[in-house]
Design a protein around this nucleic acid. Structure first.
Lengths: 211, 211
DNA sequence: AAAAAATGAATGAACGTTCATTTACTTGAA
DNA sequence: TTCAAGTAAATGAACGTTCATTCATTTTTT
């Protein structure tokens, strides 16, 4: 008897939900968003076709919940890093960057899912809203930290928002290249490039060798 | 009688081809890749459904040719900038960045098309190959220019490839934010952020005010 | 007149959704 | 504890729709 069968109803329901979402992610990564079908998702999850509609009402619902799932995962990572007492804004930034290129975040399946939704964002306001919210949460926090560094050090002519947007966009662009050209842009290289960005902007606080 | 009808056969054929591709781009941007249909594309182009299959053999063929079309457009832009006699590597880089955030390149319809293909790239080797080729052409050129600046100036510990990848990824990430959050990342801001990246890395060659 | 370009209705495969039915779990009285 | 009644979860075949593709026919160009 599997562990599944020993759970009670509520847990089983939640587990099926998550299993369907994880299968959706796998299908998006392996087949592409435009080839995802309810049949392939439910088959991968090992459940009947009807169940997906029972839990998510429709395919659209399943995709919306999948985006919400990866969104929440990322946001809770942000929160977790912020809640840890950091030694300094610089360390906080470095922790953030380190996490953004950890295997939890920057693995190709998850990146493929993000880019699949980004690729549809222009024509789907629902997707765009969730994606831009993730973007704001990340940028706003980074901007605060950059502002602290600017205030501490002597960095004339620096605009915290521009620098924050630069870091966040650099990270997203590095993710793209990890997806498209993984042999050229490895996780290590991507991380190094992002740290270099910080080191070049804040030489008094962060060195190129930082990890 | 329209201009179309006055052309000869070969020109008319080429024009229909391009019109179908442009309609495909419009449909990808407006409806999303996963909602593009042969019916919507041919209706937008004002031709019969059969014609698309006549010219492109299949929907897959039409999408492949659409990607090739935007690829060729970008690459010829690269070539054009490179063929112009530039005063210096720094000017060349600035010209490149300026073009990357011109309305020709960084308009939301075209960006939506790029991200639609990027979003499917993991599961479609054909797309990935074309996309990574564009990436290489861009990065290689930027890397050469960065190397020239490093050789000219005194920039200890600089790795041209890392800096080049940084610039290219920053540009791509800025494109993403222009697509997802255009009210936050305008064309002007994106351009400024990219120039700042160059100015911060090469302070002896490029100033923040550069355009 | 011959060749090329273009049409669009017809075809059949693929897909999302539904719902009558079955299976599994929970509850509470004996 | 036991068991029956009630509730929730899950099934999957059937249905109707959508879509890409085809091809006999028409229109346009050479």
């Amino acid at each position: 008897m599997t562990q599944t069968k020993q759970r009670n109803g509520a847990d089983a329901k939640a587990e099926k939900r998550e299993r369907l979402i994880r299968s959706t992610m796998k299908c998006i990564a392996n087949q592409g968003m435009s080839s995802v079908t309810m049949a392939s998702v439910t088959q991968d999850a090992g459940v009947s076709m009807g169940l997906a509609n029972l839990h998510f009402k429709s395919k659209e619902g399943l995709l919306n919940e999948t985006l919400a799932y990866v969104h929440d995962q990322y946001v809770s990572g942000l929160e977790r890093i912020a809640s840890k007492q950091q030694n300094s804004p610089a360390d906080h930034l470095l922790e953030q960057v380190k996490w953004d290129f950890s295997s939890k975040v920057a693995n190709r399946e998850l990146l493929a899912v993000w880019f699949a939704f980004w690729g549809e964002a222009k024509s789907r306001p629902t997707y765009r809203q969730v994606c831009s919210e993730r973007d704001s949460l990340m940028t706003d926090r980074v901007q605060q930290l950059c502002q602290q560094l600017i205030d501490e050090g002597d960095y004339p002519g620096y605009d915290a928002e521009d620098i924050a947007i630069g870091l966040c966009c650099l990270i997203e662009g590095l993710w793209l290249d990890m997806l498209i050209a993984p042999q050229k842009v490895s996780r290590e290289r991507a991380h190094r490039v992002a740290v270099n960005y910080l080191a070049t902007n804040f030489p008094k606080h962060i060195s190129r060798a930082s990890k």
